[in-house]
Structure formats: C-alpha cells, structure tokens
Nucleic acid binder design. Structure first.
Lengths: 341, 341
DNA sequence: TTTTAGCACTCTGTTGTTTCGAGTGCTAAA
DNA sequence: TTTAGCACTCGAAACAACAGAGTGCTAAAA
C-alpha cells in the first residue's frame, strides 16, 4: 500500500491532535482538523490503512487511534513543520542562560532549568567534557597534619579536588616534592595518562619518598578519572509526574535518571547535531515509554557536550526540536567565548 | 482519665503492631501480642479510652486503631525498648562508612547510603560546617585569557571553586596581586568577613586595579557564602516510593527534599544529640505525614553536622534511633580523626 | 466494680450488572 | 471512490449486593 498525500495529511493531523490532547483520536474529531472535506467514513478507511501500514494503533478495539513509534518517526522526518522559537522566547532564554557568572556548571544548570520549565519535561545535560583535556596543574594543600586536599585543574577549566589521608605527617617538603613531580610528569599531558598503572611505575621510581606519596597519587588518579567522566546535570525531574501516560514506570524512570552513567552514555552517543529517540527506539528499556531529544553543543568547533529532554512520547516535537537547537547553540556560543584555548 | 499500666502495654502493642504491618490494628489481633489474657471486649474498652485520651485514632468508624502523633510520642518517650544494633551490623556499617578515601563528602555519602539501605528511608546529611572556619587560601587560576577559576580553601577543609569572567585580560600580575591582597586581608580571617559590603570598600581602596579585580572578589564572596551554607547530601530518595502510606504527598515530599535549604535548616536546628519529629510535629507542612530522625555528630567536641532519615510516621523507632546514634557517632569519630585543628 | 459474651450496626472493599457513549468495520447505495 | 447507515465492541461509570472486619453497647457473670 502506498502512502498518498491524503494519508500523510491524516497521519499528521492524528499525531498533532494526539500530542495536543493526549486522547486517542477518532475519525469524527479529525474532520475539523483537515483542510479538505470528506466524511468520517472515508477517514476511517484511511486510518484503517495507516494502522495496517504500522503508523497508527488502537489501544483497544473501540477507541480512537494513537501514533506508533513508526508514526511519530514518519511525522518527524517527513511531515512536521518546525516551529521556530519566537524572538521573545529567544530573548527570555538568552537572558536566563547568560545570567550566571560564567561558570560552565552554572550555565548548564540554568540552561537545564529553562528547558525544563519551558517544556514540562525533565532536562539533562552534560558538562563540556575534556576528552583531550590536559593537566594544567596538580598540587596538594595540607589540611591537617596527616590530611591534605589534592587539587587538579585541567585545561578544560574543570577543577576537581578531594581530601586524602596520608600515613605519614605532611611536611612542606612533601608539598613541594609532589608539586615538582606533577610539574615534571603530568602538566601538559592528557588526563588519560594518569592511570593507576602508570602511577605505580612512577611511585616505584621515587625511591624513599614512595611511601609518603603513594596515597596522594592514587587520589590524583581518582580525580583524573572523575574529570574525564563528564558530569550529568538533571533538572525538572518532578515535571515527569505531570505526565499521566508514563504511569507506573515513572519510578523506574526516575531511578534511571538518578544514576548518571547511562544518561551520560545516552547523551554522548549521537553523531548528528540533534538526536531524537522515540519510545522503543531507545535502547534502554526504562525509556520505552519516553522520548528523548538530544541536542549537542560545540565549543570552539568541537563537539563537547549535550542537552537533552526526556518526556512522554507525545512531545511537541515541532516546537521542542528547534528550541533545543536554539538553547544548545546558545550554550555552545557562550562556552566558546569563555573557554578560549 | 489516668494512664494505667495495662493501657501502656496496650498502647505499646498497638504502636508496634502498626509499625510492623502498616494496618490499623483491631482488638482481636492484639490478643496474641499481650503478655496477659483478657477478652477482646476488654481491649476494646481500653482502646476506646486511649482514643479518647488522644493516643489512638480510627481511620473510619469500623476500622482498627492507628497511633496518633501523641501516641507515637508517648511510646518513644516512655514505653519503647531501644534495640541496639548487633555487633554484626556495627561492623558492617563501620566497614562501609570507612571504606572511602578520607574525603568528608565521600564519607557522608557512604554513611547516607548505608543508612538509606538499612532503613528503607531517604537519608539526608549535612557536611561538617565551618561556622568558625577561616580562610586558608584564596587565589585565581587563569583558564582562558579572560577567564579564571577562583579557588577558596577553608580551614574546615572544604575547597570551593568557580569560574569567573573578567572584562580585562588576566596577566600573571593580576594573579599575583589577587593572591597578595587575599593573603593580606583574608587569610586567617573568618569566612563571614568576606561580605559583599566589605569587598566594596576593599575594591575602592585598590585604586587603579579595582576594575580588573572587582569581578573576582564578587565571585570570591559567592564562594565564601557557599562554603558557609553547609551542603546537603541526599540518598535513597526513591526508597520513599515503597511506602504506600505517604500517598500522593510523595511528589511534594521529593520536591521538598530536592531543594536543600529547608533540609539544611531542619538538620541544623535541634539541640539534643538526637532529635525526633513525628508527623505534624514538623514545622514544614510537606513533612506532615512523615517522621524524621536527626542525629548530630561532633567533630573534635563541637557540634558540626547531622545525619537524618525521613520516612513515614510508622518508622521502627526502637531500632532506628540507636542506629542513627551509632552511625553519627562513627562519622563524628572518623571526621575528628581526619580533621585535626 | 470489672470482665466477658453476644449482638446489632457501620463502614470499606470487592464483585457483578447495567448502562452509556464513543468509535469502529462492514455493507450497500450514490 | 465516497458516503450514509447500522450493528457491534469495548471501556468507563454508576449502582447494587455482599462479605468481612471491627466497633460500641447491653446485660450477664465473676
């Protein structure tokens, strides 16, 4: 069966109506939405065809039709008219997003906030990651006689720190020695180089000071790993409660969102600027009833991180896709400006 | 009406049975739980008295009885037999809690985790706060030509940092100047001294360099404020979903937990070592259906922070109160050891 | 005076029945 | 190919019937 123009129009109308109301849409209700006049019987026939073709389905025999994953996909790829954000919205967003102090984390937090508010979905974002980030500085700062903070600053502008306990008292010489070892071996080198294995050989070469230093280096490796694994920010989680159709899965969904790794993977995956996964298109089963729209941002020309929203499958794609593109573009621009290389 | 010993036994049995099962408890069910034999009619009479006295209530006319806030309170204060954690449990907890690297945040995270797991509640904790903390070090680290990280290290061992954008290029001289100004004016002084007002006068006194420095100082004030407002950690939030009786309030409750300030207030409030608020005893209406058990910990003899659990009112107080005391004691000990002054 | 047995009563939750309405698929005529 | 008409299906809501748990009260027993 081939896809006629009339079928397309009907499919689009069904999708849009369902997105708007959340109710299965019946043949009669559709009459008003179409720009041509036919009877409801004709529409019924067409809808039956579309159902057979896999674009629509019925929750039960005597209900209206609901788009399938395939239906949404066709709509998004071929039928949808994008709805660019208004000048007004753009300004409001830009104002909120840039209201921070220039701190990347704060920036992404604001961006997530504004997205969550505007879309009524949960917003996720990843910090600009420094895959090729190098060590800019590493040092220890004594806190107690046997405790110190290890501080690691990367070229990507992230600073990580962690307390660390030593078996031996920390002297100014320890501090000095650590600093110079780091300066000699790490500064300017990529973060990946600070692996536990590599550190073991290094510690071995330190001879008599190996003992007092080893715990510091272990912590340093922790920090490096931490700096490499891009942080995930989550906003508007509770918006999900407003979407009835997510049903009992909400709890699992929220649990899923809480642990960052899968989200981080999700966001880092797509190759295109914008990436849309509808319901079962998602590889995580917790997202089988949800859609995600992921928009990547570039910092100084390099793909660096992404912003995403997660909500029910009946998202207002026509509006949200351009919105996400706009916000991620904005974030990329601001970050590019602030993180020069 | 006075409280006879028999009434006390019945009240205790009702509370314990309700805590165990979550079902309103009827007169017949209670027969087996008591160490004396009377008929169900007698118990009914006594329960009616207890209800009249305000310790019990009925969800509806023909249901069993449920403890009121007052009932729980009486039980906890006068009737309860504390159930100290077993040696086994103590060891398991101690092992988990001390498995971190000596970082206070990680320590509290682990503690919260273990509490959440053990109790099936949401766990909250505040970082050791440094009310009397002083500035140990403050500096800027250039990231781009016009961007820098401001880093603030306090005597309490917390390190805060934030990116900041400057209107003018940042030169090594800027870094040096900032460092020396901080060394002269802030190091050793309490964090509260870095107020915006104080900074304004300072900036004014800097003359020609005022402009290039001002944004850094503003950020520094942010950091100081941030370091003073103790961070709140939250674990096991989703455990709350397992408690049916929280009902529709769960959403509000989770929203409430998400924003840290009220929690921070809640935890910093109590004067006693342990602090129990049952249902409506809580001043926040979002907690009206919940109980909180807060246990404070001391670092080097000074009240520094607290751990708490939040769950339904039918908590197993007899078990959880000693548990919380144990964990907070443990946390205090470990922190005292690692943060020497 | 206190305890107990007995009984009528109340309230909830469940189950089954009915009804209503929305929407469909099919058939036959336009 | 389209449309009108109609029988049919299914879910949601409304309603009645009922079982079960538990109570309060009364009157007898201890």
């Amino acid at each position: 069966m081939e896809m006629t123009q009339r079928k397309q129009k009907i499919l689009a109308a069904v999708v849009e109506s369902y997105i708007r109301t959340g109710e299965p849409v019946g043949s009669k209700n559709l009459l008003g939405e179409l720009d041509f006049s036919v009877s409801s019987a004709t529409i019924r026939n067409e809808m039956a065809d579309l159902a057979e073709m896999g674009y629509l389905e019925q929750p039960h025999t005597s209900a209206g039709r609901v788009p399938t994953t395939l239906g949404y996909r066709y709509y998004i790829d071929k039928l949808m008219n994008k709805l660019e954000p208004t000048e007004e919205d753009r300004k409001a967003i830009a104002k909120t997003v840039s209201s921070g102090s220039g701190d990347p984390e704060q920036l992404l937090e604001k961006a997530g906030e504004v997205i969550a508010r505007l879309t009524g979905c949960a917003a996720v974002s990843t910090m600009p990651l420094g895959e090729k980030a190098t060590v800019r500085r590493a040092e220890i700062v004594p806190v107690g006689t046997r405790t110190a903070m290890i501080v690691l600053l990367t070229s990507a502008g992230t600073l990580k720190s962690k307390a660390c306990r030593s078996d031996m008292p920390i002297t100014p010489q320890t501090v000095e020695r650590f600093y110079s070892v780091c300066a000699a071996h790490f500064v300017g080198k990529p973060l990946e180089d600070i692996s536990t294995v590599m550190l073991q050989t290094l510690v071995a070469s330190l001879g008599e000071h190996a003992l007092e230093m080893s715990s510091f280096f272990v912590t340093l490796a922790d920090l490096a790993a931490d700096a490499l694994s891009s942080d995930v920010l989550l906003e508007g989680q509770s918006n999900l409660f407003n979407h009835r159709e997510l049903g009992g899965n909400i709890i699992e969904l929220m649990e899923f969102l809480r642990k960052g790794e899968p989200i981080s993977k999700l966001l880092s995956k797509g190759k295109d600027d914008i990436d849309i996964k509808i319901g079962t298109e998602n590889e995580y089963k917790q997202l089988a009833n949800s859609s995600v729209i992921i928009s990547h941002y570039d910092v100084n020309g390099a793909r660096s991180g992404a912003l995403g929203i997660i909500g029910p499958t009946r998202l207002n794609y026509a509006k949200l896709i351009p919105y996400m593109q706009f916000v991620s573009g904005l974030v990329g621009d601001i970050l590019s400006e602030s993180i020069e290389d």
